[in-house]
Amino acid sequence: MALSGLFLCSFLVIHLTINLFALQANHDKTAESFWGAEMFETYGHFMATHPVIRPLEWGLFAGFLLHAILGIYLYLLNRKARPVQYEVNKAGENSTWSSRFGWLTGILVGVFLVVHVNTFFVQSRFFGQEPMIRLMIEAFSSPAYVAFYMVALVFLAYHLKHGFQSAFQTFGLRAGKFEKLVNAVGVVFWLLIPIGFAIIPLYFLFAY
């Protein structure tokens, strides 16, 4: 759980880094071009076609699948440890919402991913829709689609809020001198990653 989670965290960093280059895009109506997004397109093209990077796609897909399957398996296994539930249980007084509902935020992020992958990855890879920047501009011109992204990113934030530091706890590294460091990096991670991703659709909706 922790290992696959941290692997997916590393993917988020790479994904965000490349996508932030899309912010360079400027609309040039006269030239009918997407001037400024060359860096974004170059990196995107490299990630999608390079013979070394391509197999990593399968690794990434496997990472998501493993994380989801392990999560569901552990959820069901853990439910068996308490066959009779409490009549009154004030879990909110001893633990955070994000820590108790990682399974729910995970499922909701998973639903988002299906839509997200279909909009961009499937359209460009299997239906030859290019360039990626045009897909982004089109998709993020819809306020409803952008709103959907914002909600999904809130769930992602809650998922990371628990998941990031939890992974380090599982590896025994959230202790002693490391505890403050892990917690601090955790806060930066769960706040900055979703905010970074949120900037992109908002840019194309309002500022582009």
Binding site: L74, L77, N78, K80, A81, R82, A91, E93, N94, S95, T96, S99, R100, G102, H162, Q165, S166, Q169, T170
Partner: peptide
Amino acid sequence: EGFGNCSNTYACEAE
């Protein structure tokens, strides 16, 4: 014994 797995909610520490 059939105890569940830790998912780091830290409810144990609080209680």
